[in-house]
């Protein structure tokens, strides 16, 4: 499946997360682990994990529409990110647009008891 994001949006993203020039699409970087690492580091240090939309919004709901996510995180330039599914789906479309073969998998998490994961894994 093609990425939801255009080349113009990818350039906007690269600028927003301050990706080094050698890892920008225009430099045609090799699709390797060094490139993935740079993207990962710049993504998590520029686009926070945050769930403010559940508390600070009129609707208190979350959209996973890729265009809505792009506007919220990049175009609006208000420092916003999203919770796990917002950020991961956004990042999935970025990786696809850059030419990576990528798919998403659901994860079961163990609850934390006093900070430490313990017991049964929770449902999807």
């Amino acid at each position: 499946m093609a990425s939801a994001y255009s080349l113009a949006q990818i350039e906007q993203y690269e600028e927003y997360v301050s990706l080094p020039t050698r890892f920008r699409k225009a430099s045609k970087p090799a699709l390797d682990s060094a490139y993935l690492t740079a993207l990962h580091i710049h993504q998590i240090s520029s686009i926070p994990y945050e769930n403010l939309i559940l508390h600070y919004s009129t609707h208190h709901t979350v959209s996973l529409d890729p265009e809505t996510l792009f506007n919220k995180m990049v175009t609006d330039k208000r420092g916003r990110g999203g919770y796990c599914m917002e950020n991961s789906i956004f990042f999935n479309h970025v990786l696809r647009a850059l030419g990576f073969r990528v798919y998403t998998a659901g994860v079961r998490v163990r609850p934390r008891v006093e900070g430490i994961p313990a017991g049964d894994y929770l449902g999807w």
Binding site: D32, L95, T104, G106, V107, V109, R112, E114, W124
Partner: peptide
């Protein structure tokens, strides 16, 4: 504090190698 009801997801990339 017990924090429950977490769902999560990850991306999996396959390189040419």
């Amino acid at each position: 504090m017990l924090r429950q009801g977490r769902v999560h997801m990850v991306n999996i990339v396959t390189l040419a190698s």
